[in-house]
Design a protein around this nucleic acid. Sequence first.
RNA 1: GCCGAAGUGGCGGAAUUGGCAGACGCGCACGACUCAAAAUCGUGUCCCUUCGGGGGUGUGGGUUCGAGUCCCACCUUCGGUACCA
Length: 818
Amino acid sequence: MKKYEPKDIEPKWQRIWRENNTYRADEDPSKPKFYTLEMFPYPSGEGLHMGHVRNYSMGDLVARFKRMKGYRVLHPMGADAFGLPAENAAIQRGVNPREWTLNNMKRIREEQSRLGISYDWDRYVATCEPDYYRFTQWLFLLFYERGLAYRKKAAVNWCPECATVLANEQVEDGQCWRCDSEVEKKELKQWFLRITDYADRLVDDLEQLPHWPEKVKAMQRNWIGRSQGAEVTFTIPDLNDEPVSVFTTRPDTLYGVTYLVLAPEHPLVPQLIRGRENEESVGRFIDRMRKESELERTGSEVEKMGYDTGATARHPLTGEEIPIWVANYVLMDYGTGAVMGVPAHDERDFQFARKHGLEIRQVIQPKDETTEELKNAYVGEGVLVNSGEFDGLEHRKAISVIADRLEAEGRGGKTTSYRLRDWLFSRQRYWGCPIPIVYCDSCGTVPVPKEDLPVLLPEDAVFDGKRNPLATSESFVHTTCPSCGGEARRETDTMDTFIDSSWYFLRYTDAGNDRLPFDKDQADRWMNVDYYIGGIEHAVLHLLYSRFVTKVLHDAGMVKAVEPFEQYDPLGMVLKDGAKMSKSKGNVVSPMEIIDRFGADTARLFILFAAPPNRELDWSESGVEGSYRFLNRVWRMVEQHQDLFRDRPDSRPEDAEAKKLHRLLHQTVKKVTEDIGERYQFNTAISAVMELVNGIQAYPEDADRGTLAEAIEKTILMLAPSVPHLTEELWHSIGHSDSVHDQDWPSYDEKALIQDEIEIVVQINGKVRGKVVVPSQADRQTIQDQAMEQEKVKTMLEGKTVRKVIVVPGKLVNIVAN
RNA sequence: GCCGAAGUGGCGGAAUUGGCAGACGCGCACGACUCAAAAUCGUGUCCCUUCGGGGGUGUGGGUUCGAGUCCCACCUUCGGUACCA
């Protein structure tokens, strides 16, 4: 008997599949399409880790399954190849970022190949290649034409370590998402993409994504932070009735406003304090706030600090003059950078008013309660009091009524505010996609014509870690104006690398196109991605940006899809001993080492079997051995029955054992088909096949041989998506000359699932007391009669009165007695 | 604080529509094969028990003939987010 030697068979089949182009995407238009995608990797110098293996194993299982089910499947791979590590390697070790990246890509591709994943390698894309980033630039120009890319000066996030700016999404707890450095604020002129124009659609269209986890949708909703309310315009008598607007979700409390608070950065503040006695102290406070980092400023434990400007504002409805304060807790980049203080009905305002001795005026009264002095802010329901003509209104109604009144008087009105800011898009780094913009003294900002793309990254940039390398390249910076032909300078910032991954799934649909990013027909043939797998750390980065870009391309008529990903499955982490694998902990399990020892099939099987897809998976050495053991059992099972396949008898399940195995086989096919195809629960699909293998091994020698042969053959087919090499080898060993991966997925026969006789549980008062075997079609009465006939049941019922008998055909009988 | 998810054997985890809790695997124990070991195969493995049975899915209540599953209250853990007006 031949031994199972993954070392021999895995490379062999990988070679044959490559030579036969087995996994090229099928273009047959008569088949339904299926697009399955795993997030492409950043080609770091580390190679693949177990998280990748898990990701790819799951995607490959689905791709192979769908292919066998008769779909034309798109299952591509690429490299998210722009990024800082390459450039840092250039600075620290003097290597060329491009070479460094391409080397890593090569290694990662080899490692992916060793896993035996069924990619259509012809569609491989690398975002750092000119034939890709040329179209990233093309898309930028499309955004620019549509008014969605603009440049403005603003206080932006600056990471001193990365020496570049960051989008809001890329700042976590005031720290850089990549290097954890504390982020600073800098006033810079930068490029932005107008993602806020799409805020409503990005929220509303989440409704169209029932196959996304609630969690991820909630994170995106929170991030966009849409909130309905009103804008209220106060005026400042001392400044010629200069208007100052605030945003509030509670216009119903407008009569409870006793002061206004502005953010320290609010543009009116300098004018307000000019010449007043506290000009100096307030000025110092403002300077300090400006210098403070995001973290110092917005950390949860930061004390509320505020200063009276001495100026006053006029209430839009009452005309009352109220003091204007400046405080650190009001943020310039949310709402209007100013808030109205309603201490009676807002927790923060209450504390602030207490601390600074400001008036607290109650204007909402809980129903059926008398007024007492407030010990806390009252934020509940109630009716309006002390609110002039609005007294007695229910507060929810008042929200609308008062907002309408403000609008009628030209002093505000209903509005919606968002937390989402425009996407800060430019980066002061080399290893990214150059922004195709030229600055000309006579023509101003000029986009590079699409036919002149790509704007190539220069080879002569200097990597000294002190400045943007692109700016050091004379050959790059100096150019001619596309408009007037005069001397001009190129934009030296590159694009945020998140743009590269925001459209790669579209490029895959038409990877070779040298005219356009992709052809509309091709994109429409494949989009949306039906099944997308990858880390949840991208819940509000990559996944939000991709949704935005897809919508813009849809609006431009480039693709039908309005959402990129039909179903998104967040991938659970791979742990070791309950902890994240990391070099510092020394608990990293190397995928290639596992493949060397057990083979890729074992690694894949273990990872699929050990936990459901989106839960954490604890790597277990003995678990891997168990998977290896199982594959050996399958191998031996087929080897032992080689004779069966020489004359391949037909399946005639007539004896009891054969009927049993036949039924088990069909049950298993049904379960595995549903677990993979509908529930995406791969661990239970595999356990079902294990049960079938157990059943086959218990099958007696003298029972029907044809039934056995069928069961073995279908076991191989059902395992093919999970362990492609082993099954291919076994498939050929039982006499087939075509690939197991080109076979039809086994079907099951509902009739085969029906048993002649079934076991029914007999309960007395809900406790199992016995079992009866009845014909499967038996009616309620027959089942009940048989149950009551049971010896055990009889003795248990002695001296008791039967009150009720519940019969669930096919399941159980419950006798209620006392 | 707010939002989201999850609590089931020694461990990873099953139980799809309210119907036999613990599938499958790991680990462990015993047995077979062997001079012996490894490998393999087989048997057992939630807890208690006077062997009749009793208890058991984070806690306490409820609905139901019947609850891991539904409802109410709470506890714990994990993830996200947080002066967002």
